[in-house]
Design a protein around this nucleic acid. Structure first.
Length: 567
DNA sequence: GCATGAATAT
DNA sequence: AATATTCATG
């Protein structure tokens, strides 16, 4: 610990508000610099560090993206060069925005078009180099503002659902890491990014931290459509809602992968929805495999009498798990890809044909982990027909996905922090995948990310020891906190009102449609996979003989409707 | 250690 | 009912 840090920490190890870089309001703010301009990076790093920021630097957007994907690095703010040599600045921006990282787009030369695009894509600010020292100094306030906003939202949410107690008192009691209130932890936890990389959390922490899973409300990742509730606090989305669009992406990925290769991680990658997690995909996959998922629209209007889980009680864990199977869901597929899907499907055949007999041999990973990768279904079956645009057979046709229909809840990042003129919520109209709540993509967020001392009674200070300690930041230079000086020009101004002249304001408050609206237009045709399955299965399975003693389970799980009916 | 998927919780 | 989380498994 540096001398400086010691000064900021009292003898009890509690962060001393008065000495903290951020005035005791936030313990730390992690900034990632994405810029190939070495000089700029060095200067900025020094400057940032001099103001107490933790700095990570990478030279390319692609590198940053990979860091984000790994989700192991805590990042609150990104400063992204608009002209990354790999041309991925905007992709990175989208990813960062999707993860609710405050993203500042910076450029050497002002370009109105770039500015506009960046802001529309959710950039917090568009800035021309160099960044004013005074601005850098107060970047942390963006973070604080965001934290507070989420806190308000959370509080509002709690008021509106007294039946739910987020904090499982037992759990809290057991893990004395967190204070009773547990506010900050909860805030983080509600981000949608608790995902697989939680595996990287110390296993001890894992169990301590993973509890507290209250019922979460629903968020729509794909559409960013959140209803514009003036009463902002009300809708605090946490659960991913599988919208029609999101599901279409899912199905698209599924079809690209093909039977026997549908693994959550692979699907997740193909879907390329930054804020989605493997767990969520896995969950959805499970649902779809059981044919238990319905589009949101369907949910309201259609009841399924299907005796799905009639065999409830003593279902035992099967040692005959099948891996990588495709969901056989009623689904919708973009027009443009229709034909290809048809072909793929033709090649692949039905996914559950062998569930009774051969499945285990075919799909089981068995001893070889490569088996699954190599597997290609051995049969070719021509479907009798496809029901495309057949409203009689396809309920989906009756429910156009009106993804663009909803308004978006606006999570104004600044709330006037930078003054009123111009700087209104650059996030408005931003990319679709912006999670409504995940502020930080850091997957270890369940450990306290922010020891925000907003309320003395709630101070939950403990050292987030894993911060920045990961070794997974390939090619990333990590600059430790340390003192350094800067040559930046000084700008004196009121912190909260500071509006650097090179900031370009966002001006698209009414632009609420995400880019998916384009895609939506393509989702007019649908396949009726249920029906298709039926026809696939009817041609008679090559080895549809005698069920063995294990069948009951498969039948229950996978084959309780058409499949079993056809055998 | 890790991804997976069935089971189960919320 | 939909989604999240747990946990046995390989």
């Amino acid at each position: 610990m540096s001398e400086e840090e010691k000064l900021q920490t009292n003898t009890e190890g509690i962060y001393n508000p008065m000495g903290a870089p951020f005035y005791g309001m936030i313990e730390e703010v992690c900034v990632m610099l994405v810029d190939h301009d070495e000089k700029f990076v060095n200067e900025m790093t020094d400057l940032l560090k001099s103001y107490g920021y933790k700095v990570t630097t990478v030279d390319m957007a692609s590198t940053a993206m990979s860091v984000l994907s790994k989700g192991k690095t805590k990042i609150d703010v990104m400063i992204i060069n608009a002209n990354s040599p790999d041309q991925l600045s905007f992709q990175l921006l989208a990813q960062a925005v999707g993860l609710n990282i405050i993203s500042l787009f910076v450029c050497d030369e002002h370009n109105a078009l770039v500015a506009m695009n960046a802001l529309e894509d959710g950039a917090y600010l568009y800035l021309k180099k160099p960044l004013h020292e005074e601005f850098v100094k107060y970047i942390w306030q963006f973070v604080l503002r965001e934290i507070k906003r989420r806190e308000e939202v959370r509080d509002g949410l709690e008021e509106n659902r007294d039946q739910i107690n987020i904090g499982d008192t037992n759990d809290i009691g057991n893990n004395n890491i967190i204070g009773e209130k547990n506010i900050l932890i909860n805030i983080e936890e509600q981000s949608n990014n608790i995902h697989e990389t939680e595996n990287n959390v110390l296993s001890n922490e894992k169990y301590k931290l993973r509890k507290k899973r209250g019922r979460k409300s629903t968020k729509k990742i794909n559409e960013g459509e959140n209803l514009n509730c003036p009463n902002k606090a009300i809708k605090y989305n946490i659960c991913t809602e599988w919208t029609t669009d999101l599901h279409a992406k899912f199905m698209k990925a599924v079809h690209q992968l093909g039977e026997g290769r549908c693994f959550p991680l692979e699907i997740l990658k193909l879907m390329n929805v930054p804020s989605l997690t493997r767990m969520q995909v896995a969950s959805h996959l499970q649902k779809c495999r059981r044919n238990n998922w319905r589009a949101p629209d369907e949910q309201k209007s259609i009841r399924h009498p299907l005796g799905q889980g009639s065999s409830s009680g003593s279902r035992q864990r099967s040692s005959y798990r099948k891996f990588g199977t495709m969901p056989r869901l009623l689904t919708n597929i973009p027009n443009l890809q229709q034909q290809q899907y048809n072909r793929d499907q033709t090649r692949r055949g039905p996914e559950f044909l062998f569930s009774t007999i051969n499945t285990n041999n075919i799909f089981s990973r068995g001893g070889s982990s490569t088996q699954q990768q190599l597997y290609r279904p051995p049969i070719q079956i021509q479907p009798h027909y496809f029901n495309i645009n057949n409203s009689l057979n396809n309920p989906f046709l009756l429910t156009q996905n009106n993804a663009a229909g909803g308004l978006q809840e606006q999570h104004g990042p600044l709330f006037g922090m930078l003054g009123s003129q111009g700087l209104q919520d650059p996030i408005i109209g931003s990319s679709n995948y912006r999670s409504g709540l995940a502020f930080n993509c850091w997957d270890h967020h369940t450990q306290n990310l922010y020891n925000l001392d907003l309320n003395a009674a709630v101070v939950t200070t403990y050292s987030g020891s894993t911060i920045m300690s990961d070794t997974d930041i390939e090619n990333a230079t990590i600059h430790e906190l340390g003192a350094a000086n800067t040559n930046f020009q000084q700008y004196i101004g009121e912190p909260n009102m500071f509006v650097p002249s090179n900031i370009v304001a966002a001006s698209h408050a009414s632009d609420t449609e995400g880019c998916d609206s384009i895609e939506n237009e393509n989702y007019n045709a649908y396949l009726d996979f249920n029906n298709m399955d039926y026809h696939f299965q009817n041609p008679k399975p090559p080895s549809a003989n005698l069920p063995n003693e294990h069948d009951s389970e498969f039948d229950q799980v996978y084959s309780d409707d058409q499949v079993s009916a056809s055998i």
